[in-house]
Simulated scan of single mutants.
Amino acid sequence: MTTRIVIGDDHPLVQAALQSALSTVLSDLEIIACQSLDEALAALTGRAEEIDLILWDLTMPGVQDFAALFILLAQFPTVPVAIISARQDAATIRRAIAYGAAGYIPKSLGLPEMADAIARILAGEIWMPPNTGGRGSIQSADLELAARAASLSPQQLRILAMIVDGKLNKQIAAELDIAEQTVKGHVSTILRKLGVGSRTKAAVLAERLSFGR
């Protein structure tokens, strides 16, 4: 049975190394390499049920940090997403798991260790590096923030990331190719779901979620 993995990483050498490592533990493997969130969304649309795992770098172009994780989970809730990143501080790793990631793989791991971690995630484990405190150390505040963000639609998550970036409704509408009035409606819904009264407070909350662009 073919295992299909989407790799979101804009470094071709990383993609090649991962494919090489994974081929040692998976006999029938299809890698779908993507260099942006839009590429990944296009690759997943219409065939999400065929995808076994998404491996995602936190520093991809465009929507960065945890915004992409929330968007992928909101749009394709049945597909597990694991983070693979050069960032390896314990706080970031624990937050990724709190926000719904199926695992967190530091790029500093050797390729055999990466392949083993990915195999464990494919088997249904939530994989974290040792010495990060485990899932029990996740802060309740992070879980509460994650629940608020998870209530937003993929489009609303994109708009929230743009608000963090300082974009006005008119700019957001142009970038997303939607009506400005539609953006205003989404912003109102975002504020209500996040439990805040202004765009500024929404941006502050999103920054606490590491919602970068």
Score class of each variant (00 low, 15 high):
Asp116Cys: 05
Gln139Arg: 08
Val187Lys: 10
Gln156Thr: 13
Gly185Gln: 12
Arg95Phe: 01
Ile83Pro: 06
Thr24Lys: 12
Asp177Arg: 14
Leu72Met: 13
Arg135Ala: 09
Asp38Thr: 11
Glu30Met: 03
Leu73Pro: 05
Arg158Ser: 13
Met162Val: 06
Arg94His: 07
Glu175Met: 04
Phe70Val: 09
Gln15Cys: 13
Asp38Glu: 14
Ala173Cys: 13
Gln171Leu: 07
Ile54Gln: 00
Leu69Asn: 04
Ile71Thr: 05
Thr3Phe: 03
Leu111Gln: 12
Asp57Asn: 06
Leu194Met: 12
Thr92Cys: 01
Gly8Ala: 14
Lys184Asp: 15
Leu22Glu: 02
Asp116Ala: 14
Asp52Trp: 02
Met162Trp: 06
Ala86Arg: 02
Pro12Glu: 10
Arg47Ile: 09
Ala68Asp: 09
Arg199Met: 07
Thr2Val: 09
Gln139Trp: 01
Asp10Gln: 09
Ala173His: 05
Pro106Cys: 02
Gly103Lys: 03
Ser188Asn: 15
Glu50Ala: 10
Leu176Thr: 11
Val183Asp: 09
Leu122His: 02
Gln19Pro: 04
Ile71His: 05
Ala161Leu: 08
Ile5Asp: 10
Leu58Cys: 06
Tyr99Cys: 12
Arg199Gly: 07
Gly166Pro: 06
Ala48Trp: 02
Ala179Glu: 15
Leu69Glu: 01
Glu113Leu: 13
Val204Leu: 12
Leu44Asn: 07
Ile97Gln: 01
Leu13Lys: 11
Leu111Gly: 08
Leu160Asn: 13
Arg87Leu: 12
Gln35Glu: 15
Val79Pro: 02
Trp127Met: 01
Gln64Leu: 09
Thr24Met: 12
Ala86Gln: 08
Ala147Leu: 09
Pro77Tyr: 04
Met128Thr: 10
Asp57Phe: 02
Asp89Asn: 05
Ala16Ile: 04
Val79Trp: 04
Glu113Thr: 10
Gly134Pro: 06
Asp142Phe: 03
Leu122Ile: 05
Asn169Tyr: 05
Leu69Trp: 03
Ala206Val: 02
Asn131Cys: 06
Leu26Phe: 13
Trp56His: 14
Ala179Leu: 14
Ala33Met: 05
Ile163Lys: 06
Ala91Met: 07
Ile190Ala: 12
Ala43Asp: 13
Ile51Ser: 01
Leu160Ile: 06
Thr200Pro: 07
Asp116Arg: 10
Ala33Glu: 14
Gln15Leu: 05
Met1Ala: 15
Thr182Gln: 13
Gln15Trp: 01
Gly100Arg: 03
Ile84Val: 08
Thr45Arg: 14
Gly166Val: 03
Ser188Trp: 03
Asp116Leu: 10
Ala90Phe: 01
Asp65Arg: 02
Arg208Ile: 09
Leu53Asn: 02
Ile121Met: 02
Gly100Ile: 00
Leu72Trp: 00
Thr45Ile: 02
Leu44Gly: 10
Leu29Trp: 09
Ala67Gln: 04
Leu72Cys: 07
Met162Cys: 09
Leu37Met: 12
Val183Met: 04
Ile97Leu: 12
Ala21Asp: 11
Ile105Trp: 01
Leu41Met: 13
Gln155Tyr: 04
Ala74Asp: 03
Pro80Met: 08
Thr200Phe: 07
Pro112Gly: 09
Gln181Trp: 05
Ala67Lys: 00
Leu191Arg: 09
Asp57His: 01
